[in-house]
Design a protein around this nucleic acid. Structure first.
Lengths: 144, 144
DNA sequence: ATAATAAAAGAGTTTTTTATCTTTTATTTT
DNA sequence: AAAATAAAAGATAAAAAACTCTTTTATTAT
């Protein structure tokens, strides 16, 4: 569904969001450890997210990545678009170059309805929402 | 969603299914052309599908790939499982190693409901169904 | 000012996926 | 039996994705 880079990005964003709630900045090492991701690879991803203004970063001592309230309003969809581009939104399930309302593939309309739900799911779940959900103790981000 | 190999496999299977309806065998060249896929790469995929008994093949003159009525009952899901394995069924959307009813990620239950529909879609669409749909002239498999 | 810190940037490497080319084996037709 | 056909199999090659390492730049604290 999403690239591995994108999965890492989502995990990292949720991780930073949780820390930002307590006004803490997080370094790349902590993010990598906290998400079970390779440090230097994650660093590249974070640089990209930062460049694209999905979160803030600060160099030097006590630096790190952090989010303000605007950043916390970002949804999974925003992260997906930033990392994987629009392919998730655009592409035909069967991989057909031409597939539209006028030239639908055999599963076009079925998939259209499902995709609508998928899009709702990623657009309606913001980082702030994740913070709330995780606070309840009913949801987890376990990697081992 | 699916790997490129899997997309090619689905396209090829639909292509062969259409020809099999008229009791025709199709060679790899024809399949590759008819699906806009690289010939030798598609050959590998077809070998794999054939080995896994998703369709029949015959060597020599007048040989090629073809399907009997049992083969036509295969669904997209069968093809996906053969080519991409069970990852589509098993994996967490966020890529978490641990994500289950007991340890759900923040979108686990939402995605579970959607995945149910996705699975219905791929399990309930057989190659025979595609043949019918395409016969109506209301659906297309266009690549250009 | 200097040293320490941490992200940004640049330049690789490795692995996986996708794609191509060649040889072999099985089958059919002449 | 010989020639032709077409898939099967094996071996490479190219491209993309995932991952690593090093240097540079900005910031802070001493």
């Amino acid at each position: 569904m999403f690239s591995k880079s994108c999965e890492y990005a989502i995990k990292a964003m949720i991780f930073v969001a949780q820390k930002s709630k307590e006004n803490l900045r997080v370094g790349i090492k902590e993010i990598a450890k906290g998400t079970d991701a390779p440090e230097h690879f994650m660093a590249k991803i974070m640089q990209d997210l930062s460049r694209r203004k999905l979160l803030h970063s600060a160099k030097g001592p006590n630096g790190g990545f952090y989010m303000d309230n605007t950043d916390l309003k970002n949804s999974i969809a925003d992260i997906v678009k930033a990392v994987d581009g629009g392919s998730f939104y655009k592409d035909c399930v069967l991989g057909l170059k031409v597939c539209s309302e006028k030239n639908p593939c055999p599963v076009h309309f079925e998939y259209k309805a499902i995709k609508k739900n998928l899009i709702s799911m990623i657009e309606n779940n913001t980082l702030a929402d994740f913070n709330e959900k995780l606070e309840t103790g009913k949801f987890f981000l376990k990697n081992k």
